[in-house]
Design a protein around this nucleic acid. Structure first.
Lengths: 223, 223
DNA sequence: GTCTATAGCGAGATAGAC
DNA sequence: GTCTATCTCGCTATAGAC
């Protein structure tokens, strides 16, 4: 009984601390709906991290709830079920990826477009390691309808790169046997950075970008 | 009751068929220990396929048993627990990978060695898609001791390629900023073939080998 | 909006009959 | 070597109090 009360108090205290960290006045935590506005992103953050670390099937709703600091029943105020939570995370990730890609300046020159894509891919994926990991690993845990939606967004992303490569090939700037395969190969190569790169290692991300861009440029036979 | 007997008979019949397929006389199925010699590999095969398709955490021992055609208790004659079954599959895969790599003829020329490695990697991994998938995806489900062993074998494989690249760089045959990163990049790229290649597609595996070797050769700045 | 409590199910693993 | 039966546990999801 005593232990349970202590846990509650600790949870509430950390909730207030979070509000302060977000730059709000502490008293705003009392406003209507304020706890929901806190809890929803905290559930998403906890699920993202736990799914990435242990895998969707290995993480229980109880564990997510514990991480957030609520009881398991409270999670179902924010998601109808566990599957929807996974789909929501993956869909949001893919939507952000496409939005960020669309926000890049248009490059008429295929070589400039390829360099921009290469650097963008490394930076964007590096900054979202957990979401990338989940989106690559948990496709098989999506129900068919959900799978098709995510898969379509993946294909569109690959097609974007394949388009750049095809343009460069048509213009005689790239020397490529097959633009589509090259797109697959390059994306696999670039996403692979996430498997070994660690903050604080011997190489800066800027240096990694240079090294990978060097390999990409050569691989497509540019110049 | 009737249904259960039917299932049993079907199981036994298929067991005998397996023996025939292996080139043994049908009556050898009666020999001492013969069922164990059948059941063990069938458990491994079923686990390999199910883990690859649905993920380690999502596959129950009951499901593996059903696939093999035995009751769940029988699995524990062959593995002390589920974790050991996963580790055994991954360890066997890595050991076979190293054995196959060691069996390749020695190539003094770095370019010849790189071409041999590229073609070997694509072919070997393509022929073992389920084991490769598991070995890449289920590392996080290994207990720490098991993880360290598998991880060491992975690093040794990467180091082999990095060694080829470093030799070629030292000899002035390759133009590379960083041999170790190039090894990571090339392995990610080559393993990626498994994510899209399907038997019966428009490209033969031999053609895929050519296309990827073309990209690898250019990426390392050979010649 | 969150809690407590629980329904209903399936998991991993083991014991003992045959 | 395999089966049947079972122990014990943890899971997803829901109901109803506050």
């Amino acid at each position: 009984m005593t232990a349970k009360l202590c846990a509650r108090n600790a949870r509430r205290a950390s909730g207030v601390a979070q509000w302060r960290a977000d730059g709000h006045e502490a008293r705003m935590a009392r406003k209507k709906n304020s706890s929901a506005e806190i809890t929803r992103p905290r559930i998403r953050d906890a699920a993202l991290r736990l799914f990435a670390r242990h895998g969707f099937a290995a993480v229980s709703m109880r564990r997510i709830a514990t991480e957030v600091g609520v009881q398991v029943g409270a999670l179902y105020l924010y998601t109808p079920d566990k599957q929807s939570l996974l789909f929501d995370l993956m869909q949001t990730h893919m939507q952000e990826l496409h939005a960020a890609l669309s926000a890049l300046p248009v490059q008429d020159d295929p070589l400039a477009a390829l360099e921009q894509f290469t650097r963008f891919h490394i930076r964007h994926h590096r900054a979202r390691q957990d979401a990338v990991f989940i989106s690559n690993m948990e496709l098989r845990n999506l129900e068919p309808t959900n799978f098709r939606q995510i898969e379509a967004m993946r294909r569109a992303y690959e097609a974007h790169l394949a388009g750049i490569l095809a343009r460069g090939k048509a213009a005689g700037q790239f020397d490529l046997p097959n633009a589509k395969l090259a797109a697959f190969a390059l994306i696999a190569m670039l996403t692979g950075v996430n498997t070994w790169y660690r903050e604080g290692g011997p190489l800066s991300l800027a240096r990694v970008e240079e090294i990978y861009w060097d390999m990409v440029r050569k691989a497509v036979g540019a110049q």
